[in-house]
Design a protein around this nucleic acid. Structure first.
Lengths: 212, 212
DNA sequence: TAGATTGTTAATCGATTAACAATC
DNA sequence: TAGATTGTTAATCGATTAACAATC
């Protein structure tokens, strides 16, 4: 099967998982991997790996498996991490700073090229190699640079306003760390840390009650 | 319907979403809310709200809706955030520090009471009100304090080892920021930031191609 | 060739949604 | 009472999995 139709949402996330796993395998010097082995590393079923990949083409050799480096490169193109992406961060608080300094993103070709805050007392501060700019400079910065992705790391109360500004600036995608549902037509990914803690607590309580 | 059987995984996450929304409504001074309104705020269907809640009991009044404060308290108990949870952080890098300083967690009754690192040069450093301790002190710290939750914010290469140590220390749940699938029987929630960026990029590319 | 593993179909499983009787 | 909204059932939709012919 090919490309034509809708890709199930869970598949998209797993693509990144596969890509990462393939990178490891490649570093380990492994040349071929079977769907069974890939699946085992990720704790899923081999048929799921094969089905997921089948949305995008035929990458394996029957009886053999997948060429690690080849599949890696293919996935790179499919996901879109075969090129560099420019990223700005809105909000120079704890989370904004952590993202700005996060080495994993740079490794994946996400270039963080600007960080902004509304708080003048933070402006001028150094975060890694970046200097915090005031939000009032956002517009001209975006006009001078090609920015595809913005990270929202502002307080919840400011987040919706920021999104609306990003829309006018023609940003292509948003990673949102503010714990609110934001209304926007821009593709957005929510990273909801407090929600993860709450889910965990629910599961802990349950496992206590059910004794497993 | 009641409690008896399995709660679908997506419901668990939405419980947190409802709880947060109810908090806002309460702050706004709103006393009653219909499933329709709650759903609209979260961008989901009203029947989903009602179905989700029905796993845990009957909380609404027909013709009226839900008492905001009452439902909030109920959810607090259901999720398990009606009590305080002690949390330690493994890894005093960018992410560990950001979590340690994150006010949203404190507000939700997660008390971060310790932060550890393997790097001796970081030991003694102040992060918010906490002082970074060396991992070698982890065991005795956990024995002196009641710790339910551990946050893994160490480099990917160290994560599996850390998990295994946490298992021996009888930790009840883990929030994992390291970009690896960790093998453990402890309930674990993964927060995978680079994966969110990759999913976003995939969606941006798709929306370009399909022109929407 | 014999053994292994793919790609794909069909069956199963799980989650969402519409619809509506019950009832505030 | 009339209007509104719940709680729940049944229908629909979407995702996972087993199974197997195709083929390296």
């Amino acid at each position: 099967m090919r490309n034509n139709n809708k890709i199930p949402k869970p598949v998209i996330r797993r693509l990144g998982l596969y890509y990462r796993c393939l990178n490891r395998l490649n570093e380990e010097g492994i040349e071929f991997v079977a769907s069974k082995d890939l699946a085992a590393r990720l704790g899923i079923k081999s048929s799921q790996v094969r089905k997921d990949l089948s949305y995008f083409g035929e990458f394996g050799k029957r009886g053999v498996g997948y060429n690690v480096e080849e599949l890696m490169k293919k996935l790179e193109g499919i996901i879109g991490v075969d090129k560099y992406w420019n990223v700005i961060i809105l909000g120079a608080g704890n989370i904004g700073a952590a993202i700005a300094n996060y080495a994993g993103l740079k490794k994946d070709k996400f270039n963080i090229i600007g960080i902004f805050d509304a708080d003048r007392s933070k402006v001028g501060k150094k975060i890694g190699k970046l200097t915090v700019q005031h939000v009032s400079e956002l517009k001209s910065f975006v006009q001078k640079n090609i920015i595809e992705i913005a990270v929202i790391a502002v307080p919840e109360t400011a987040a919706q306003m920021v999104v609306e500004e990003l829309e006018t600036l023609n940003i292509k995608g948003i990673v949102n760390f503010a714990p609110v549902k934001l209304r926007t037509k821009i593709p957005i990914e929510d990273v909801d840390i407090t929600l993860s803690f709450k889910s965990l607590v629910f599961r802990i309580e349950r496992s206590k009650k059910e004794g497993n």
